[in-house]
Design a protein around this nucleic acid. Structure first.
Length: 396
DNA sequence: CCAACCGGGGTCTGCCATAGTA
DNA sequence: TACTATGGCAGACCCCGGTTGG
């Protein structure tokens, strides 16, 4: 879990930095985020308080009837709650011009659901529009989410992760219709729970948008000669809970990529996209193509045939997720140890392991007298437990 | 007992652009 | 015309272990 994010956004904040990581790495940061932001919010609150009182004074005396009437109550409330006002203003300035806001109701509401004060401050800092929602609307929305999730705490966790997905829309009817729709597509409650946990934005999409994606998937299914589109869609959503937050353009492009790149018949393509290759559909613009091109070039340069390359990728579609550098580095690090390229493509799962795991294991195995170029290399990607047991045996 | 095979589990936000709306 | 609601975008693996078959 040493991967680095590519898109780091650093928000200067007093002496510190609040760093928001790209998704797949987000969980590394979660505890740091909460811990780090806590003192920073308090710290910046002190500073802000000093400048704020001056500004409020100026508003009252100087231009009481001029417009940018900053709502003093609002600022005070947010300050007391520990909200990072700079961040909030930067994100949604409009919220601060409203005459009426419900930050205190929101706080009480979320507290009653088990959210911590820090979490609430963080939520508002990151998605200020949350404070424009009414209590009734909030509890209606919450209840709808609770139709899917079994506990309030699970929802709190989602909100902490992604406040926007809950608060971005105020349209509860649309939410309700989405839930109905997803059930009607044949998804189980368990599956909806997975969707809500993994891709909560799905439920804030307009019903129309979700329908478009389902339609697309069904069309693909039918056009490939499968006669049970309902089953197909169910499978694909189960396999890839993120599918409904992708654009149809993206998914279409990726399906076309798969279709044009590999010589698959309809049946094979269907199996691929609702099975091992389901996640490839999420890849951003040309990413799949770019990575595949890199894989191909690398392997051809090492003496593989085009046919072998295709077979290799199809036997291990996840390889398309590997960024160019990472793929090349992994291959290089294996080749350096005189592992042949044919050993690699016959055992693609060795690429599952991180570079550091590969390096560590190679070193240990060589020390134990294991000849990687003539022996089996699959143990490079075994689970820790199995690998350790094997190593112990080799060493004794 | 051993390893090949294979599927599963974790996990996707925060930002920007732009129609639509009051 | 300021503000809201919503769509779309980039980003980019690693590990575990049940089952099966020898």
């Amino acid at each position: 879990m040493q991967s680095l994010s590519l898109r780091q956004i650093s928000i200067p904040k007093g002496l510190g930095f609040l760093t928001i990581m790209a998704p797949r790495n987000l969980w590394h940061m979660r505890s740091n985020f909460l811990f780090g932001s806590r003192w920073m919010i308090q710290f910046s609150a002190e500073i802000l308080f000093k400048s704020l009182s001056v500004r409020l004074f100026g508003v009252k005396c100087g231009n009481a009837n001029k417009e940018p009437l900053e709502n003093g109550d609002l600022l005070n409330n947010l300050l007391t709650m520990g909200v990072d006002i700079d961040m909030a203003k930067k994100r949604q300035p409009g919220v601060f011009n409203r005459m009426v806001t419900n930050e205190q109701d929101l706080e009480m509401f979320l507290l009653s659901k088990g959210a911590s004060k820090e979490a609430i401050a963080s939520i508002i800092s990151r998605y200020p529009r949350a404070i424009t929602r009414s209590s009734e609307s909030l509890s209606k929305r919450w209840d709808l989410w609770r139709r899917i999730m079994t506990s309030d705490l699970e929802i709190v966790n989602i909100l902490e992760r992604s406040p926007e997905s809950f608060f971005r829309s105020n349209n509860n009817l649309n939410l309700e219709n989405n839930i109905k729709f997803l059930y009607s597509v044949g998804l189980t409650r368990k599956c909806l729970c997975r969707l809500l946990t993994n891709a909560p934005r799905t439920f804030s999409n307009s019903l129309e948008l979700n329908k478009q994606m389902v339609d697309l998937l069904q069309e693909v299914c039918l056009s490939l000669g499968h006669n049970d589109p309902v089953d197909f869609v169910r499978k694909i959503i189960f396999k890839n809970p993120f599918i409904l937050i992708q654009s149809t353009k993206r998914v279409k492009a990726n399906i076309e990529f798969l279709q044009s790149t590999f010589n698959l018949n309809s049946g094979e393509l269907l199996v691929l996209i609702c099975g091992p290759g389901a996640e490839i559909l999420d890849l951003s613009n040309d990413y799949a193509k770019r990575n595949y091109t890199n894989i191909k070039e690398k392997l051809l340069s090492l003496g593989c045939t085009e046919e072998e390359v295709q077979k290799f990728v199809l036997s291990y579609p996840d390889v398309i997720f590997l960024a160019e550098k990472k793929f090349n580095d992994k291959i290089d690090c294996l080749i350096e140890e005189r592992i042949s390229i044919s050993q690699i493509i016959e055992n693609p799962r060795v690429l599952d392991s991180s570079i550091s795991t590969l390096k560590n294991r190679i070193k240990e195995l060589v020390n134990a007298g294991y000849n990687l170029s003539t022996s089996n290399i699959t143990l490079l990607s075994w689970s820790q437990k199995r690998y350790k047991a094997k190593l112990k045996k080799l060493s004794s």
